[in-house]
């Protein structure tokens, strides 16, 4: 089983997601973002940069994230963390958030690109569908799992731009589960975290 750590930005929604009983046992370590300098990333196989972690606290540690990947580990980059600011090889494009597509007759436009990927034995597309915060242009050789229209990916796996694995998403389930809002986000984490555990 992969040993997982997650970053805690001190927000209420990180508290609910990381410390409350529903998911607590998935995290072998919780690292407060202002303690990153002294944290031992090497103790973990998977490091989750939790949704909406302030990029300004990550930028000073970009070399530490790169070293984690150089060691062959898995870095999970969640939504609204501005990864282009603190990690190389991530091409994120911000788009305004559509909270109302399901109420106003539109569609969010998400679709599975790699339906045979093991993640999808843990979650469905519906479990990943609430809204998204922008999209990514997937590096050559990396694998998108979910695209939005023909714009780009909202969830992809990159085993080519480093010695490790980047799992990158513009979805923000930890924020909304932590806010008691949008039940799909809880279903997403119910499947996503067990999948990470099995890496």
């Amino acid at each position: 089983m992969a040993r997982i750590a997650a970053l805690d930005g001190g927000t209420y929604y990180h508290h609910r997601t990381l410390y409350e009983p529903r998911y607590r046992d998935f995290f072998d370590g919780v690292i407060y973002t202002r303690d990153i300098a002294d944290a031992r990333f090497e103790d973990y196989d998977v490091l989750i940069v939790s949704c909406r972690t302030d990029p300004s606290v990550l930028i000073p540690h970009r070399a530490k994230f790169e070293r984690f990947l150089d060691a062959g580990k898995t870095l999970v980059i969640m939504g609204s963390t501005g990864p282009g600011n603190w990690l190389s090889g991530v091409d994120w494009h911000y788009t305004p958030t559509n909270f109302w597509w399901w109420k106003e007759g539109g569609t969010l436009g998400l679709h599975l690109v790699s339906p045979d990927h093991p993640l999808f034995s843990h979650i469905t597309l519906a479990d990943a569908t609430w809204h998204h915060h922008g999209h990514f242009i997937v590096p050559d050789g990396a694998t998108s799992l979910i695209d939005v229209g023909d714009l780009g990916s909202v969830l992809y796996e990159d085993r080519v731009t480093s010695a490790g694995t980047k799992i990158v998403t513009s979805l923000d389930p930890m924020y909304h589960h932590g806010s008691h809002f949008m039940p799909a986000t809880t279903r997403f984490l119910d499947g996503f975290l067990p999948w990470l555990r099995g890496l």
Partner: peptide
Amino acid sequence: NPIKGAGDDLPDVSGYATNIAQIDHY
């Protein structure tokens, strides 16, 4: 002001009241 550089979806009060000042969170 929290969370700098992760998109512009956080509210900005600039221009909606005259008696405001803003600083970075930390």
